[in-house]
């Protein structure tokens, strides 16, 4: 079975919009907040139907987060969106204090993950959300790989009290899952191999699957895992990855604090495993098309394949007991 990379039919923002409308129709406690980016996210299309429960606060991200916390105190279930950098690093203290520390129930959607911010460039290109959010006690942190994955994540946030953060792209993702796919607890085992494992999230899951095909051509059998819930991480999924004795993580994110860190930190304590982190290293964002930027930062199938081969060689040389 080889992976055919084709673009999914449904934009991820459409999944979010439909989710909100569906829930809001059944549940009066749903409120939706935007900070002057509703037309980018297309939630402006549900403004009329939601009425007072649709709140565009204006360009006030701090107010958006703390006000949402207040709405939770008043019995509501807020979903708030802005671009990733503003939804995380700009409002880190508001998320930390008004939501997490205060124990309010707020789901934050940070869009335009990493290189998908494209022409908005360095100011708008977030590579740090997972690092920041993972450091918050009891946070639930997700990254969607495609529209079906996002749907599953959003359903999970609806069932989950406290702070939820969802990292996503706004437009169409490469299709990873068929219609009607069911999701396990925070991860999806996409391929099962014996030589090396690739643990990826977001847009890098498609690259991980293509890398697995390339590795197969070279006689290397790879496990592939979509780690769509980055915190709390499913330890069983990572122990599964560790069975091959070598792990490449792949993320459209800084290697410090994202899924590469989540895997390394978890396995360092449970089962130390050779690992290489494909991701952004000591770099800021910049303008460019996503494909160009992926090349710039080494977020490519070729890099995953090369690093996987190196790890397999290393594993064989040092005779790691798997």
């Amino acid at each position: 079975m080889t992976f055919e990379a084709k673009i999914g039919k449904t934009e991820l923002r459409e999944v979010y919009r439909k989710f909100l409308l569906d829930k809001a129709r059944k549940d009066d406690s749903i409120v939706v907040l935007e900070a002057d980016l509703s037309s980018s996210m297309s939630t402006d299309k549900i403004k009329e139907e939601l009425g007072d429960r649709y709140i565009n606060v204006g360009i006030m991200e701090a107010q958006e987060v703390s006000c949402a916390a207040g709405l939770s105190v008043a019995g509501f279930k807020p979903y708030i969106h802005t671009f990733g950098p503003f939804a995380s690093r700009r409002v880190f203290d508001q998320i930390f204090i008004s939501v997490a520390y205060a124990g309010t129930n707020v789901t934050i959607i940070g869009s335009d993950a990493g290189v998908t911010a494209e022409a908005n460039g360095g100011t708008h290109m977030p590579f740090e959300e997972l690092s920041l959010l993972r450091a918050i006690p009891d946070a639930h942190v997700y990254e969607a790989s495609d529209d079906k994955c996002l749907q599953a994540i959003l359903e999970e946030t609806y069932r989950t009290d406290g702070l939820n953060y969802v990292r996503m792209i706004r437009k169409n993702a490469i299709e990873i899952y068929p219609e009607g796919e069911t999701f396990e607890d925070g991860y999806k085992l996409l391929r099962e191999g014996s030589d090396v494992s690739i643990v990826a999230s977001g847009i890098m899951v498609a690259d991980a699957l293509q890398a697995a095909d390339r590795l197969a051509e070279a006689g290397i059998s790879a496990t592939v895992i979509d780690l769509y819930r980055v915190k709390p991480v499913n330890e069983a999924a990572l122990l599964k990855a560790a069975e091959t004795g070598a792990i490449v993580t792949a993320e459209n994110h800084n290697v410090i604090g994202g899924i590469g860190s989540a895997v390394a930190e978890t396995l360092a304590e449970l089962k130390p495993t050779l690992q290489y982190r494909v991701g952004v290293r000591e770099a800021f964002g910049q303008v460019g098309k996503a494909d160009y930027l992926k090349e710039q930062y080494g977020l490519t199938v070729e890099n995953i394949v090369a690093q996987a081969k190196k790890l397999v060689d290393q594993k064989n040389k040092v005779g790691v007991n798997v």
């Binding site: 703390s66 916390a69 207040g70």
Partner: peptide, 25 residues
Amino acid sequence: VDMTTGSLGQGISAATGIAYGNKIA
């Protein structure tokens, strides 16, 4: 205690969220 406060500026925002929520309810 209705809202956790101490990081200045956040309590007033939360209070407006509470007031708005009460209003639309």
